[in-house]
Amino acid sequence: MNVKPRAVLVGPPGSGKSTVGRLLAERLGAAFRDTDADVEAVAGKEVGDIFVEDGEERFRDLESAAVAAALAEHDGVLALGGGSILREATQELLQGHTVVYLQVGLADAVQRVGLGTARPLLVLNPRSQLKRLMEQRRPIYERLAVLTVATDGREPADVVAEIVKGLPA
């Protein structure tokens, strides 16, 4: 049996992967799955704690395994952690999937993420860190995406409607 997610959402922190993903799954009558939640379930602790206690490399290992499992098992809407696309093996696994890049500008991302949140890669000088992450990852998101949807200044429902129109039948 060949299981494949209907849509795989990628994008930087604050792009709306979880919010849009839940709404999209509801609209499609499908299940929603977030690989960050899968990582937390396996590790028994929150993503921020994994970074602090075990390091980024350990988190990325857990994340890679979570993405591989979700791509093989899940047939609904899948939201990936913002940095999950950094590993070559994950990029290869995403080939042939309906990858939707949720594009967001720095101002909207900062507003949505909030600069006091427990996002491990945004601890020191969060605004410049987020800008750097977004610039570093943008070419990968763009290359992997079969559909790119801008989320700046838009309601999640509008973003979902655009994704639904762009999904393969």
Rank of each mutant, 00 (worst) to 15 (best):
M1S: 15
P5A: 00
R6F: 00
R6D: 10
G11F: 02
G11W: 01
P12Y: 10
V20C: 10
G21T: 15
A25D: 08
R27F: 05
R27H: 13
G29V: 14
D34W: 00
A41Y: 01
G44D: 11
G44F: 06
E46S: 12
G48Y: 02
D49F: 03
V52G: 08
E56S: 08
F59K: 01
D61T: 15
E63D: 09
S64Y: 01
S64I: 04
A65M: 07
A66P: 14
A66T: 12
A66E: 13
A68D: 14
A69P: 06
A70E: 08
L71C: 04
E73R: 10
E73H: 07
G76R: 02
G76L: 00
G76T: 07
L78H: 08
A79N: 10
L80N: 11
G81D: 13
G81L: 13
G81N: 11
R87L: 06
E88A: 14
A89Q: 11
T90N: 14
E92T: 14
E92F: 02
L93M: 08
L93Y: 02
L94S: 02
Y101R: 11
Q103M: 11
A109Q: 05
A109N: 04
Q111L: 08
R112I: 11
V113D: 01
G114W: 02
L115W: 00
G116V: 02
T117S: 10
A118Y: 01
R119N: 03
R119E: 03
P120D: 00
L121E: 02
R127P: 02
M134H: 06
E135S: 12
R138Y: 02
I140E: 03
I140G: 01
Y141K: 06
Y141I: 11
L144R: 06
L147I: 13
A150E: 09
G153I: 08
G153W: 00
R154N: 05
A157M: 05
A157I: 10
A157Q: 13
I163Y: 05
A169I: 13
A169L: 11
